[in-house]
Design a protein around this nucleic acid. Structure first.
Lengths: 149, 149
DNA sequence: TAAAATTAAATCGAACTCAATCAAATATAA
DNA sequence: TTATATTTGATTGAGTTCGATTTAATTTTA
């Protein structure tokens, strides 16, 4: 990326010239920072972002959940079953359309929010960006994500 | 992220206010864009970024490779065995220090570079950022990655 | 030197990711 | 009303991902 033009022959194949690579590495590094905090409430990162949706929505279909998280049912099914086994959500087929599986947060799931709310500020301290930079990063990432919508 | 201050009670737990989430989603979305191109040369994304290092370095230890890719030996061992089975690299213990496994690119691995070089420009077209924006994103991501070094 | 500590990889286990496929339910068309 | 197509969610399989443990080799220390 350093020089966007004048890429001589193979420079495009250098790791340092990729945008995808730091994105990928950063994503994993930040998820890793969440781990000790998420361990406290016995959630994995994927379970955590799914719970975030439930804390906001309460009840949602697997399909809609997948759209919000950019994840497909192959990923979500085991995650939701795990959350159900912990008693945090219930899974029930819609009566109007039996194909649709509705997932709903339980009282226990709601209660977990109290503990979870302490996590974002604690993780935030691990990221070395100024508020303004974080804002810019946020905007650029959503620009990429919303491209195809 | 929209409002960095004045987070009332639970706003910090909204998906849209997380920085980690778009980072994670973006990373997966971009890797997904690589897939059809990588299928052409029969590499997964992880194998591809490992090959990028070999195209630059030729010969490197698992330890050093892991440092470059932010991946540990638990991830790399199966990746490298797979690349070896395709004949793209060889794996041999260092004679000076038997603990160290040196991985070296083969002639076939070198040849693959010719095909791979067409990938970055083709994927680049899938990302909706201006060159200047891409540059900014790149800089911010590396700022996060280099924090702990 | 011999014991202890450190280091590098491999291994293992649990979880995630996603393409591909399947089965069931619904919608549409002939 | 039948077929046909589409939609939805589950399942499967290959490949990651990473913490934790193990093994082997090396280095440090007593």
């Amino acid at each position: 990326m350093p020089e966007n033009k004048d890429f001589c022959n193979y420079d495009a194949l250098k790791l340092e010239n990729q945008l995808c690579f730091p994105l990928y590495a950063c994503s994993r590094e930040i998820i890793k920072k969440y781990r000790p905090f998420l361990d406290e409430i016995d959630l994995t990162y994927t379970q955590y972002i799914a719970m975030m949706v439930f804390w906001e929505s309460g009840r949602i279909s697997v399909k809609e959940l997948g759209k919000k998280l950019f994840l497909d049912s192959g990923t979500l099914t085991p995650v939701l079953k795990s959350l159900e086994s912990k008693g945090l959500v219930t899974r029930k087929r819609s009566t109007e359309d039996e194909r649709v599986l509705m997932v709903e947060i339980t009282e226990l799931g709601q209660q977990l929010k109290e503990k979870a709310v302490t996590i974002p500020p604690r993780v935030g301290g691990c990221i070395a960006l100024e508020p303004e930079e974080a804002m810019t990063l946020y905007r650029l990432l959503y620009k990429i994500l919303n491209k195809d919508e």
